[in-house]
Design a protein around this nucleic acid. Structure first.
Lengths: 242, 242
DNA sequence: TTCAAAACATGACTTGCGTCATGTTTTATA
DNA sequence: TATAAAACATGACGCAAGTCATGTTTTGAA
């Protein structure tokens, strides 16, 4: 529940420079003319800390792909408490879902964690692509299926595990998905405060602070938001699934 | 965590009788030859209480559609506690997701709530359909998108709301999605014990019993598993979103 | 380098809900 | 319709985690 500036001025959309799109599965599926057409429809937009890519309730205009950086998907309840549903990494798709169909609105917000670069295309171009290319449609189905499984796994953990186990599971997940190996352990590449973590595991900031203190004592982790290091991922795994 | 029999003998698969498939969107999308081919690939299977349609960890062989009855999707954690992720109703698809891709296994179990009828087709036939028909693929994308949104809404509620609010939200959801209007209120069409509800809202049976007792005192609901009636859905809605 | 704002930390107290125990009512099936 | 098994109910108690309060450290921008 931190205050959010909204300087939406700094982001600029423009044509996508060719090349260096190698790590995005959906784009590699297509070839020849289909690929060219797709690239032609994509534009790039950049966002910085404190901005919103879109807000809960906004009309859905684009289909998005994360190119660089990390984006968090957030929902909040009537009394302003927030819950972070997912950290999107490069290659991740968003708004490929039903919100993009009919005249629906975004069911949640998307906020960058630091500087990010987003590729996007109009809904119309997106649907055209899906209609024209079964490969692209299958890729999206596969992607959505994985997201659904992830979401359900998260539901299970939230429903059945204690807060310390959920926090351990989060650290393991982030560590394995995006951690950078260093000599002291695995470093998380994005800034991540205790409050961020609390929103991700469905608990309060104070509780996360206490638990991280304990984890630090037990030599499982070290550091704070700007430099968070996982020192013993194996023991965290055990803690998560006990 | 109730004991489960496993008399898998009673279910029989066979050709699907034509007609009376009107209420299944995916089937109505197709026409002519595509539709005929699809119907030819579908078989029907029936299951009863206490059976499993499939279990967590089983290999994925089929794509499924609920034809009649209600199916629950369940996951459990290492110490045997269960969590119900979703109640599937007629027209719902399952295993359209990534589990069906590559050699993955089912991430959760599917159990009938009473007698159900399931349509299913082989993974191969399913993929063939998606490749051949962009309409079918788009329908599946739309369906998966909706499921993902639902799952994330559920995550939010689980993370941010109290147990009584989550229970109220469940009753509202089931009531509006599948309730039958009667003179005393809205009746839920499936047998639903306090334990079932507890597994759906991430709490214990005792807690649900207590809360349902309170709800009954407050004239919000009445009845037990076999005949559960929502008497004041508006006040339940208010309670859920406060 | 300064200095205000975030972020982190820790204690005290409260509470929602889990756990365990025991009893009653309802439901299925022989 | 008998009767065992589910399902429902209620109380007592404990604890994980929320809340509030106060203080320290770190961070980032001027």
């Amino acid at each position: 529940m931190s205050k959010q500036r909204n300087k939406s001025s700094s982001n600029r959309a423009g044509a996508v420079p060719q090349g260096q799109l190698a790590q995005i599965p959906l784009l590699n599926i297509l070839s020849g003319q289909d690929r060219q057409r797709l690239l032609h429809e994509l534009t790039e937009a950049r966002y910085g800390k404190g901005e919103f890519i879109f807000r809960e309730g906004d009309p859905t205009e684009y289909f998005h792909i994360v190119k660089e950086g990390t984006v968090k998907c957030v929902k909040s309840n009537p009394d302003g408490k927030e819950c972070t549903l997912k950290m999107l990494m490069p290659g991740d798709l968003f708004c490929c879902d039903a919100a993009a169909f009919d005249g629906a609105r975004h069911p949640g917000s998307a906020q960058p964690m630091g500087d990010v670069s987003i590729l996007r295309m109009s809904k119309k171009a997106y649907f055209d692509m899906l209609r024209r290319s079964p490969d692209a449609a299958l890729e999206v189905i596969k992607y959505l299926g994985n997201r659904l499984n992830e979401a359900q796994e998260k539901t299970k953990v939230l429903a059945l595990e204690r807060a310390d186990q959920r926090l351990a599971a989060l650290l393991v997940d982030l560590g394995t998905r995006s951690g950078i190996k260093e000599d002291q352990g695995i470093r998380l590449p994005m800034r991540l405060t205790r409050e961020d973590m609390a929103n991700m595991v469905g608990t309060t900031t104070e509780t996360v602070i206490r638990m991280m203190s304990r984890f630090k004592q037990d030599a499982l982790v070290t550091g704070t938001a700007n430099r968070l290091i996982i020192r013993d991922i194996e023991r965290l795994k055990k803690l998560a699934s006990t």
